[in-house]
Simulated assay, not measured.
Amino acid sequence: MSNERPIGFIDSGVGGLTVVKEAMRQLPNEEILYVGDTARCPYGPRPPKQVIEFTWQMTRFLLKKNIKMLVIACNTATAVALEEIKKSVDIPVIGVIQPGARAALKASKNSRVGVIGTLGTVKSDSYKNELQEKAPETYVSSLACPKFVPVVESNQFESSVAKKIVSETLKPLKLENLDTLILGCTHYPLLRPIIQNVMGQQITLIDSGAETVNDVSTLLDYFNLNNYEQTNQKARTFYTTGSPKMFKDIAHEWLQIENLDVSHINLGE
Rank of each mutant, 00 (worst) to 15 (best):
S12G: 06
Q230W: 11
F223G: 03
L131G: 04
D90L: 11
L62F: 06
R40M: 08
Y127V: 08
V213P: 00
V113K: 00
A23I: 13
P146I: 01
V113H: 06
V152Q: 01
Q57G: 08
G13K: 03
L181P: 01
V262L: 02
N214D: 12
I91Y: 07
L267S: 03
V122W: 03
H264Q: 15
T218D: 14
F54K: 05
V151T: 04
Q132S: 13
Q98G: 11
Q201V: 11
I97E: 07
T138K: 01
L181V: 11
S88V: 03
Q233T: 10
E53A: 12
N29C: 09
H187S: 06
G114T: 09
L267I: 05
D125C: 13
L260K: 09
T59F: 00
L17M: 11
T240G: 00
V149A: 10
N266D: 13
L175W: 13
N226R: 15
S126A: 14
P172R: 10
Y43D: 05
E22H: 06
K64T: 10
V166K: 06
F157Y: 14
E4I: 02
A23F: 11
T38M: 12
G15H: 06
A101C: 10
T55R: 01
G184P: 00
Q50T: 15
C41V: 14
A210G: 07
N197C: 14
K171S: 15
R236N: 08
K49A: 15
Q156R: 14
E176V: 11
K245N: 13
C185V: 08
R102P: 00
D37L: 06
